[in-house]
Design a protein around this nucleic acid. Structure first.
Lengths: 335, 335
DNA sequence: AACCCGCATGAAAACGATTACGTTGCTGCC
DNA sequence: GGCAGCAACGTAATCGTTTTCATGCGGGTT
């Protein structure tokens, strides 16, 4: 026996399907008495409106899609948590498609979501303006997260990597270190670029005469380890190191320990992201925290805001601040 | 201008809508020539079938729903990754609803998914047999992950906590420790119960004369710390400790370090889960690894298998093995 | 030559909701 | 008492597909 339809409810409550529909949504246009009778009948039959039928006529799915790359654990789950909580609060469903590596994979995912979602949340390094133009109908609202795309056609929501990196470097300098070396991320990565700029800006402002020392990594622990050894090979080695993310900082820490250096007494260290591991390494790692749940929540809210107003959607570029987390590794306490 | 419909394609290709439909799915019943003409017209118009309309008539959404509790980072993202990869491989979409604390919240989520999904993946401590009966139509295929529910009506997929815990205790005993103390998880938790049983079974088998020492925690780092102090207060304190999860082991480790004990020389330690942090604490933590991606993949495949066969779905209880990961903290190398 | 069968194709009926548009009946005002 | 106006309710069109059934056509068998 299949599920009850609106007709069954109508028959049960001895009214027309139109009245049932009216009673179920809003309830205007029906007497309180009949509305009550209808609701009683509905719950008696355990009636649940058929989502597809409603979608078809209203042209609204009450679903938003999230397109995500192959993300490292903590970031992914926090982001989804933020998105999901905000979505549920607004009565939206969440259709997820993650772990995309290639652009063509992402394109296929986007196409298959067509018509199932009212809007799209995209976080992906591979997605650029051309991709969006060719794979998306311009009528579909989109919010880009952490994207380098400078589109006037879509809302963009970024983490303030520049300010975060800059603040951490400033902190290290003001804690008494004459100079700070930097372990950069992959050059193709937007976040990495911004953090690099933040480092340079802070150095230029607070230590204009100090040398700029940069070693390039790729955000992996392994590359951090190599970068650490490379920095130690320099004479004299730097007294303070800022890594563009925590995983590289952790690898770097291993290199320092192996070399018999004490952190932070002999050399200070800081990372970026505040992944959980940062608290558990010894010494605990100073880093820059991104409020990821917040990021997801705001992204979804921006998207929903676009859905509501039918006018040419207001576009904005928004930036989400981050905060410095001072722990043992940067030696702030021994100034 | 709205998206192209099947009618537009039909007009463009000078055929009926029926032929377009046939050409798009499978293609049987149309000449190769006309099929090609239709596909050409379709791509010219950038035609994408309207998902809702198709759902309405086929009564299939090609979507499966995942109902998850408020999960700790790594586990959540790995599980979703496994589910998502398997789903995409089979052409299914993934509707996620996570971060559910209460049973009524979960119930609401389940209801709102009604009709949007072909099947449901449920991982939740709050969900029991009664919940399933009252909130789900029996026609909806469900796979329960890590659930204590012994239902003959639904497929259940569990991690072999018993074997994992048992194997770790056996390993500790055979590494030369005369006895092993246990830090248990919350008694209401199914995983915790199974790990507890595994501990007792291994003790009974490999150290039948040794005392059973158990301190109860709640899976948090804090409770692990308290448990560690409690164990050290005993005279003589245990020489080997097995915690029911890694977070408690990490808290416990802090307690041991504070007390000036060396791990593993003075006291051995092991956890369960193999969260990323386990590798980064000092000393690195021996633990039991669960193949989470695998868990998600298998769960989805089980579910899809049920979808395909219309007969009274074959029910099974499946168990996924886990493996011991030996690192520094258990002192296996200094036997 | 008559027949039948298979095959490509088209016409039209679903699917289950929303909603524009009529119809009814009642109220209130002149 | 008649008429306008309004609220409650029903009828039917509509959304975009799939699918059943009918139709016509070509060719092989008798």
């Amino acid at each position: 026996m299949s599920a009850a339809t609106i007709k069954d409810v109508a028959r049960e409550a001895k009214v027309s399907v139109a009245s049932v529909s009216r009673a179920m949504n809003g309830g205007s246009g029906v007497t309180a008495a009949t509305s009550e009778r209808i609701h009683a009948a509905a719950s008696r039959l355990q009636y649940v409106p058929h989502a597809a039928a409603r979608m078809l006529i209203t042209r609204r799915s009450n679903t938003i899609g999230a397109l995500l790359p192959d993300l490292y654990g903590e970031f992914f789950s926090e982001l989804i948590r933020g998105i999901d909580l905000a979505a549920r609060a607004r009565g939206f469903h969440l259709l997820v498609s993650s772990s995309h590596d290639g652009a063509e994979e992402a394109a296929a995912a986007v196409r298959s979501m067509q018509g199932r979602v009212d809007g799209l949340l995209i976080l992906s390094a591979r997605v650029d303006a051309a991709f969006l133009r060719s794979n998306l109908p311009k009528s579909l609202p989109v919010v880009l997260i952490n994207s380098a795309v400078k589109s006037t056609a879509h809302t963009v929501l970024n983490v303030d990597n520049f300010a975060g990196a800059s603040a951490m470097v400033q902190h290290l300098l003001q804690a008494g270190h004459a100079s700070v070396a930097f372990i950069a991320g992959p050059e193709s990565n937007f976040d990495a670029q911004q953090r690099d700029k933040g480092y340079r800006a802070a150095m230029a402002k607070y230590a204009p005469n100090a040398p700029i020392r940069i070693v390039v990594g790729d955000f992996t622990e392994e590359s951090g380890y190599r970068a650490g050894r490379e920095l130690l090979a320099q004479q004299p080695h730097p007294r303070a190191v800022f890594a563009a993310n925590d995983m590289m900082a952790v690898g770097c820490l291993t290199a320092f320990k192996e070399a018999g250096l004490r952190v932070p007494q002999d050399i200070a260290l800081a990372g970026f992201d505040d992944i959980p591991v940062a608290r558990y390494v010894t010494p605990s790692l100073s880093t820059v925290r991104v409020r990821i749940v917040e990021l997801g929540r705001i992204a979804l809210e921006q998207l929903v805001a676009q859905l509501d107003k039918a006018d040419p959607a207001p576009i904005s570029v928004q930036t989400l601040g981050c905060e410095i987390v001072v722990r043992e590794s940067c030696g702030a306490s021994i100034t």
